[in-house]
Amino acid sequence: MEERSQKVLYVEDNPLNMALMHHLFKKNLPDVLLLEAETGEHGIEMAKQQRPDLIILDIGLPGLNGFETLEHLRHGEYTRHVPVLAISAFAQLSDIAKARQAGFAGYVTKPIHVRTFTEIVLNLLAGGAGRFTGC
C-alpha cells in the first residue's frame, strides 16, 4: 500500500455520515488518508497519536460536543495548530458566528455540497483559509 502524504481525522458519531465521507474521500480526495473517531474523546486521542493535517469535527457529538473537543485540541501540544473544520446540521447564522468565535478554521453545514466541501478541505490542507458558510 502506498504512503499517503496527508491525513484528515473525521470525528463523527453517525455511521451513515461516516460512510458518506469515506466515499467522498475515496472518489474526490484519493491521496488523502481519512482517519475516523466516533466521539470527541476518541478524536482527541487519535489526533495526539496520528497528528493529522486537518480535523473535521461534528458539532453535535455525544459526550464532549464539538466546541468542547476543539477546546481540548487547542490545549494539546501536537494538536493546537491543526486546523479544525466544523461540520454540522446547525445552520443558523448564530451557529456559524459561534464557531468562528470559538476558533474553528471553517464551518460547513449538512447536507454538504460535495464540490464546495472538497475545495474547502483542499484549501485547508494547503494552508489556506476556511469558509464559514453552508455548502
Rank of each mutant, 00 (worst) to 15 (best):
H42C: 04
D95H: 11
H75W: 00
D58S: 07
H23P: 00
H75V: 01
A99C: 11
A47Q: 10
M46T: 07
N28P: 02
I87M: 12
D95M: 09
H42P: 04
K27N: 10
L16V: 11
T109P: 12
D95V: 03
A19P: 05
A99V: 04
L34V: 02
N17T: 02
Q49C: 09
H113R: 08
A19D: 15
V84G: 04
K98M: 08
L57H: 06
G66C: 04
A37N: 05
L35Y: 02
A86H: 05
P83C: 07
S88A: 09
P15E: 09
A19C: 09
T79L: 06
A105W: 02
F25I: 01
K98Q: 15
P52E: 10
T109D: 09
A97E: 15
R74C: 04
L61G: 14
L20G: 14
E68T: 00
P62L: 05
T69D: 01
H72C: 02
K26G: 05
E36P: 05
A47V: 01
V114A: 15
I44W: 11
M18H: 07
V82Q: 07
G66M: 05
N14T: 00
K110P: 13
L29V: 06
Q92K: 08
L85E: 04
I59L: 15
A97R: 09
A89K: 02
R51N: 14
G43V: 01
L73V: 08
H75D: 08
Q50W: 00
N28V: 01
L16P: 04
R115F: 05
L70A: 11
A102C: 13
N28R: 15
L24K: 01
H75M: 12
P15V: 01
R51G: 10
I96P: 13
V84Y: 03
E41K: 11
E38L: 08
M18A: 13
A19S: 14
H22L: 01
A102F: 11
L35A: 01
P15W: 00
P111Y: 02
I44V: 14
L64K: 12
R80D: 11
E71D: 15
P15T: 06
P15S: 03
L35Q: 06
I44G: 04
L24G: 06
P62S: 08
E41L: 11
R51E: 14
K27R: 14
L64E: 05
L73G: 10
T109A: 13
G103L: 04
L85S: 05
H75A: 14
R51S: 13
V84R: 10
G43A: 03
L73H: 07
M18T: 12
T69V: 01
I44Y: 11
D53Q: 07
